Amino acid sequence: MTLKIGILGFVIAVGLSLVVGALRSHKLPKIISFILGFYVEFFRCTPLIVQLFFVYYGMPTIGVKIDPVFASIVTMGLNSGAYMSENVRGSILSVDKGQYEAAKLLGFNSFQVNRYIVLPQAIRVAIPAFMNGFSTMIKETSMASVLPVIELTKLGNQIYAKTYHPFEIYISLGVLYFVMTYSMTFVARKLERKATKWQ
């Protein structure tokens, strides 16, 4: 369950961060700029646990009932997407402006410039931040224990309530989280080597 929430939430976060980060790196109409800015700042400036409570317990008050696992996945995705979108925006802005001008001279339109020239370079720069975001999300799935979701931390708490052996249980939880997150460093290194092959 921990991996399910973490991986699906990460997929949502990556998709959101690419779209929001790419849009916010360009000049936009004020209303769109305000909406995207509000999304980013709202999720960055409020605690994740409050967001989980709002989505799962608050939404039913307006007639929207959400499954606790789905609520966890969506909230984690929205939260991490806000943080990661700033990494994407910074990565896009780091691309040399001369490349935009050269692409225009070669007849590329705005979509082609972003698709074939800017985004590939920006994603290469953003890969370490993406991998860090995934590791953070795996650890933050423990927050889902505040909802009726039996993930790793809640399962540990339930075992503790029956056995009263906190040391063994929480050491085991720590080791499991460490293995899941540390394994991402190897994936990150492989992706970085592949991304920089043609640098």
Rank of each mutant, 00 (worst) to 15 (best):
K4F: 13
L8R: 04
G9R: 04
V11T: 11
A22I: 12
L23V: 04
R24H: 07
R24I: 07
S25N: 10
K27D: 04
K27C: 00
L28P: 07
I31Q: 07
I32S: 08
F34S: 04
L36S: 05
F38N: 03
Y39S: 00
F43E: 01
C45I: 01
P47V: 12
L48W: 09
L48A: 10
L48H: 06
I49F: 14
F53D: 00
V55A: 07
G58R: 09
G63R: 11
V64T: 10
K65D: 13
D67I: 11
P68Y: 14
V69R: 07
F70D: 03
F70T: 15
A71E: 10
G77H: 12
L78S: 10
S80G: 08
G81T: 13
Y83C: 07
Y83P: 05
M84N: 14
S85F: 12
S85D: 11
E86D: 12
V88N: 09
S91C: 07
S94Y: 06
Y100V: 04
Y100D: 06
A102K: 00
L105M: 14
L105P: 00
L106W: 01
F108K: 01
S110L: 08
V113E: 14
A122C: 03
R124I: 03
V125M: 11
A126C: 09
A129R: 02
S135F: 01
T136D: 09
M137H: 02
S142V: 02
M143V: 07
M143D: 02
S145N: 06
S145D: 06
E151V: 08
T153Q: 05
G156R: 08
N157R: 14
Y160N: 15
Y160R: 13
Y160M: 12
A161S: 15
K162R: 14
Y164W: 08
Y164R: 06
I171N: 00
M180C: 10
S183A: 15
V187S: 03
K190L: 10
L191M: 15
E192K: 03
R193T: 10
R193A: 13
Q199E: 14
